[in-house]
Design a binder for these strands. Structure first.
Length: 355
DNA sequence: ATAACGGACGTGACCACAAATTAGG
DNA sequence: TGCCTAATTTGTGGTCACGTCCGTT
């Protein structure tokens, strides 16, 4: 439910409420962007008609009352400096979120699609995809071998790596970037964090910083403007626990096809040999990868997905004690067996096919 | 302004067992 | 090489315990 407020209260006043700022033009809809050119808050419709040629930035998704300054990639949210500070200073995990400065919007904010899809067709989506795909492209789906030449199976390859966020890596880079960035824009006060972290995994660059830079150039990717390589580069990559914990179910079939099954247990993402940077990618390869990445990004979903409907059906019929599965008694087993038999006989439901 | 309290909320562990997978003959 | 059997691993959902957040006093 949209909450509107015609207010003149500045966000920095410290008094925050849940009311979204109304469009300064029509006063009837919640603002979506802040026009730097006119210093006004504009809703989606007014923006499309009036401000297409102006320089705008998204409005903070948290307070909806101030222009966004940072884009949090972990939360996929545009945040103003105040909300960014509040949210990302809350706990150590939040502090690790990878945020990048919001880039101004030039041109139409939304495409010509329906309003329902408009949110997903933000102009800078491509740039964002490029940026996110950049992390993904860092890893080739090459087999990983240890020092003895043993094949350890794929590491961060194929369809898995694309979902792994190189937050820490980028953050380390960005910390350097921010230093320089802050010289130009004093109000960007992202809390700096140490690159040294328990969960940081060393990454092996091929031949130092120049080659790394070259890799990005070859990929057609660049660090954010103003970035300069530090004298002592921290070659590290880390994975957000959130990202590691989430395995997109939609890719499961792909994984089962393209990857070997890990020996036993889960893949230890925080150990093992260093990750090799990709060698070279032709423009066509890169284009194909970015396209594939975007397609997967469209279809990826983080809600729980049932892989085996039969197991789900069985789990739902299992006896429980305080939510835990309980042992079946003989009587329950007979009843259940009869229940199952009747279901099969009626053939209305039948057996739930396994995938 | 600060501390204490309590409700709301989010997250992970736990359980049994059929199904899936792997290993060995 | 293919088949069979036994052993091992995986996946499933409701509830509880615990920690955190946030508003109130």
């Amino acid at each position: 439910m949209l909450k509107l407020e015609n207010n003149t209260e500045t966000h920095s006043s410290g008094t925050r409420n849940n009311w979204a700022r109304a469009c300064d033009n029509c006063r009837s809809a919640a603002c979506t962007v802040y026009c730097r050119t006119d210093s006004t808050y504009i809703c989606k419709n007014c923006d499309a008609h009036i401000h297409a040629s102006h320089e705008r930035v998204l409005v903070c998704e948290a307070c909806e009352r101030a222009p966004a300054v940072f884009l949090c990639k972990a939360d996929s949210a545009s945040l103003c400096s105040t909300c960014d500070s509040d949210i990302h200073s809350a706990n150590p995990l939040a502090r690790r979120h990878h945020r990048v400065p919001i880039l101004p919007i030039l041109g139409p904010l939304y495409g010509t699609s329906t309003a329902g899809d408009a949110e997903d067709e933000f102009l800078t989506q491509d740039e964002d995809d490029e940026d996110e795909a950049a992390s993904w492209l860092l890893f080739n789906p090459v087999k990983n071998s240890d020092s003895q030449g043993n094949d350890n199976g794929p590491l961060f390859g194929g369809d898995v790596d694309e979902y792994l966020d190189l937050n820490e890596y980028n953050s380390c880079q960005n910390s350097q970037f921010n230093d320089q960035y802050n010289n130009n824009q004093q109000h960007y006060n992202v809390p700096q964090k140490s690159c040294a972290n328990d969960s940081v995994v060393p990454i092996q660059f091929l031949n130092g910083k120049d080659q790394v830079h070259q890799q990005f150039i070859q990929l057609g990717l660049e660090f954010e403007a103003g970035y300069s390589y530090p004298a002592s580069m921290s070659h590290s990559v880390s994975l957000s626990p959130m990202d590691v914990g989430v395995v997109p179910e939609s890719t499961m079939s792909d994984n089962s096809i393209s990857h070997h099954r890990p020996p036993k247990g889960t893949i230890d993402l925080f150990s093992g040999p260093p990750i090799q940077m990709p060698t070279q990618l032709s423009p066509m390869d890169r284009e194909a990868r970015v396209l594939r990445y975007r397609e997967k990004k469209k279809t990826r979903k983080f809600e729980k997905t049932i892989r085996y409907a039969s197991r789900k059906a069985y789990a739902e019929t299992r006896p429980r004690v305080k939510g835990r599965f309980a042992k079946r008694t003989n009587a329950e087993g007979e009843v259940d067996q009869r229940f199952s038999s009747s279901l099969i006989a009626e053939s209305t439901y039948g057996l739930v096919p396994s995938f």
